[in-house]
């Protein structure tokens, strides 16, 4: 698991697309934070989720997931390593992107504290879907239609719970954590699938 973590962190730092995405997320977060702390929280959540989907999904897109599986054939440990790596990257990114909401210290702390969970959810979704574009498009669709239009961001759904927890209803944290566990359980079952030729 430690080897996977080190490999993943090396990779994130060396692939230009990865650190450009991280830098862009930080820059946009800093900008949004100036206008609205709530909007920053929403954006930071989507950013953390997106970075996690990107780093995990790329492995399936470019077939390098095979190399990870050869290095760590016990797939649950592989998943754990990927989750920790994504959580570290996302948490650092979110913490830095929120420096402009410093006067809302409680919200900053809650958002940063929940970032590892949302990163784990991103890894889990990408592990199940195995295609980063579909994973992101599906998530945006879900967010707009299920959580936004139908649930009005008040229903006990993952992103709504994350948003409400960060903006003043800490009890929603449990709902959000529950969804993360569900996603992780799905990923733990699905990562055992065969890696076939393309």
């Amino acid at each position: 698991m430690i080897a996977v973590l080190r490999s993943e962190l090396n990779r994130t730092l060396m692939i230009r697309a990865s650190w450009v995405s991280i830098a862009a997320t930080i820059a946009l977060g800093l900008t949004f934070g100036v206008y609205s702390a709530d909007f920053w929280t929403l954006f930071a959540g989507i950013g953390a989720f997106g970075l996690a989907v990107l780093t995990t999904g790329q492995h399936y897109q470019h077939r390098t997931a095979m190399l990870l599986m050869l290095g760590e054939p016990r797939r649950w440990r592989l998943l754990a390593g990927q989750c920790v790596a994504a959580a570290v990257v996302a948490t650092v990114t979110t913490a830095l992107s929120g420096l402009t909401v410093a006067d809302e210290a409680a919200q900053w702390r809650l958002t940063v504290a929940m970032t590892p969970l949302i990163a784990v959810m991103g890894v889990a979704v990408a592990t199940v879907v195995r295609r980063p574009t579909w994973a992101m498009a599906g998530t945006v669709g879900w967010l707009l239609i299920a959580e936004g239009l139908l649930g009005k961001l008040r229903a006990p759904l993952p992103f709504s719970a994350y948003l409400n927890a960060a903006t003043g209803d800490p009890k929603q944290l449990f709902i959000f954590a529950g969804w993360t566990v569900v996603a992780l359980a799905g990923a733990a079952a699905m990562i055992r699938r065969d890696m076939l030729s393309h």
Binding site: S7, I15, L68, G71
Partner: peptide, 18 residues
């Protein structure tokens, strides 16, 4: 298989810990 954005050395350095 390798990520197209990594150099040859970069690819091996991501593999090295494994």
């Amino acid at each position: 298989v390798a990520h197209p954005g990594l150099t040859g050395r970069g690819h091996l350095r991501t593999q090295a810990p494994l």
